[in-house]
Amino acid sequence: MSPLLELKKLTYQAQRKMILDIPEFQIETGEFLGIMGPNGAGKSTLLKVLAFLDQQTSGEVLYRGQAIPNGNAPLELRRKFSIALQQSLLLDGTVFDNIAIGLTLRKVPKSIIKEKVEQWMELFAVSHLAKKNALYLSGGEAQRVNLARAMIVEPEILFLDEPFSALDFPTKIRLMEDFKGIIEEAQTTTVFVSHDLMEIHFLTTKLAIIVNGEIKQVGPTPRVLEHPNSSTVSFLNEWKKFYPVAR
């Protein structure tokens, strides 16, 4: 069976600089993939290309074995994906309306929207905020709304770009624990960009290390962390000084 998403001979250049150079890469159904690397390694660009929100310079992105026209992914395909960024980027309106927006844009009937929003607000513990303006939330609350907004459309793949990195430690821990439970329950395939080893270790099942636009190592998360190869060892060891996650 073909993988859910697949990259073939993909390059991405900006102002003649190579940002991404990935000969091949796969994302399988059901995995929680972490993409980790130093700042400027090309993590966010990779995420955008995978989510059909940006155009690669050359190469192909395949969805279930089928090549998708570059920069022209059909709306139905885009709507199978969801994305949540570091900044929550909520809209001026109630928390309820913000969480509902993905469904509203997909023209889901109102009664179903109400039911689903209530269900997802409950899961992310923001029910009491339903009528509050989303622009006046605390960082943790806003990120909960942001994740609920992404999850409510029940995406085939959920893309996350450092959604926890701006939160203070206790808030982060609480949200990550809640989130992990929700994802495991929903069994959503997730692509998670982060530069934080603790987040990666806690959440992901598979890990790709990207440095200078190239994927240097891929494998089950514990294995990558325990056995970094020659290209990733220096980067990972820096982190392990602070989080001795892998013995």
Binding site: L75, R78, F81, I83, L85, L89, I101, L105, V153
Partner: peptide
């Protein structure tokens, strides 16, 4: 740019994006 990206990622068509921005 990020806001535009986020709105697109929410599954908005071009018309829906415009409408959403006008309301914002």
């Amino acid at each position: 740019e990020k806001m535009l990206l986020q709105i697109k990622a929410l599954g908005a068509t071009k018309v829906q994006t415009l409408w959403l921005l006008i309301k914002q």
